[in-house]
């Protein structure tokens, strides 16, 4: 068995404030294999984006890692000096942000931003970089790339700009792309195109993707495996089909039950959506034991006292005493 491309072990991220140290990520472990697409789902504030930022070494102060390790291809990157890490960022790990409208610098032409990135990471002439930038723009589906390369970001639509962002991320041929809600800010009609594009690019190039989203439809469409996050912890992680069809963690089950589905309705299901009572706890008030226990209909005494570990259950790993004991 070969080593996974990315391995996150016991990651812990804290945001200290005046009164307390808020634990945003608590003991999160997962791996991403080469060419694999891992979906990371959960409600807002579950720690999805913070996990992505931690891998990139781009946590916003005062947030910082207080435990665990992150390895890229076996090499630890979380303890690397900043100028070494900088050469990995953008070069081996690319990141797509949520809002393509604000991700591009408004005062520079898109071509200049692409060639700049290439030339920072590789010894390549301006002319070669430009030729490759045009090819890349064509690859991400931008019509007339030889003209568009000299456009300013404001001259392109949101969907086009997200394609440019993808070209910018791909221009250094990264092994891993972290896509943080890449379609949330886009029109619904454009979302599907961008998702299909990310999937095709990853497949063609053998690039691994960590796809952060709260859209289960997107996960079902492109991911190989999915991790469900809750209150800074992983509740369940496993192959996408199994987790979506037969979720084991009560939170994952609640999440899947809250998705409207035409197929379910057609199959004679009454089509009623289930609701998880209550809200996700604030970081300052995460309950003892399992973080989900106050909202869980099946909680037992052990759930309130002892935190469940992520243990194998069927094809997945689940952190729930009801499932794993």
């Amino acid at each position: 068995m070969t080593a996974p491309l990315l391995s996150v072990r016991n990651l812990r991220v804290e945001f200290p404030n005046r009164r307390a140290r808020l634990v945003a990520i608590d003991d999160v472990s997962f791996e991403i294999g080469r060419g694999e697409i891992l979906g990371l789902v959960g409600e807002s504030g579950a720690g999805k984006s913070v996990t992505g930022a931690a891998i990139m070494g781009l946590l916003e102060p005062p947030g910082h890692m207080t435990g665990g390790e992150i390895r890229l291809d076996g090499t630890r990157i979380d303890t690397m000096p900043i100028d070494q890490l900088r050469r990995i960022r953008g070069k081996r790990i690319g990141m797509v942000f949520q809002d393509p409208l604000t991700s591009l610098n408004p005062v520079y032409r898109i071509g200049a931003q692409i060639t700049e990135t290439m030339r920072v990471h590789a010894n390549i002439s301006e002319a070669d970089a430009r030729a490759r930038a045009i090819a890349l723009l064509a690859e991400v589906g931008i019509p007339a790339p030889e003209n568009r390369i000299d456009a300013y970001p404001h001259e392109l639509s949101g969907g086009m700009r997200q394609r440019v962002v993808l070209a910018l991320v791909l221009c250094t041929e990264p092994e891993l792309i972290i896509a943080d809600e890449p379609t949330t800010a886009l029109d619904v009609s454009v979302q599907a195109q961008i998702i299909a594009l990310i999937k095709a690019l990853a497949r063609n190039r053998g690039t691994s993707v960590m796809l952060i989203t709260h859209d289960m439809g997107v996960i079902a469409e492109v991911a190989d495996r999915v991790a469900v996050m809750y209150a800074g912890r992983i509740a369940e992680i496993g192959p996408v089909r199994d987790v979506l069809k037969a979720p084991q963690h009560p939170y994952a089950r609640g999440l899947m039950g809250a998705i409207p589905s035409l197929a379910k309705k057609a199959a004679g299901h009454d089509g009623r959506l289930t609701l998880i009572p209550g809200n996700m706890p604030r970081l300052s008030a995460i309950p003892e034991g399992c973080a989900f226990n106050p909202r869980c209909g099946e909680a037992i005494d052990r759930c309130r006292a002892e935190r469940p570990s992520l243990l194998p259950a069927a094809t997945s790993h689940v952190a729930c005493w009801r499932v794993t004991s």
């Binding site: 050469r87 604000t102 610098n105 408004p106 920072v120 250094t172």
Partner: peptide
């Protein structure tokens, strides 16, 4: 604090380049 500066960091551009080329002009 803008997204394009964060994105420039995520692309691994040197900090001085981000500050003087990307941030200062804006």
């Amino acid at each position: 604090r803008t997204d394009y500066v964060k994105f420039a960091r995520a692309r691994g551009l040197p900090e001085s380049r981000i500050q003087f080329r990307h941030a200062l002009r804006n």
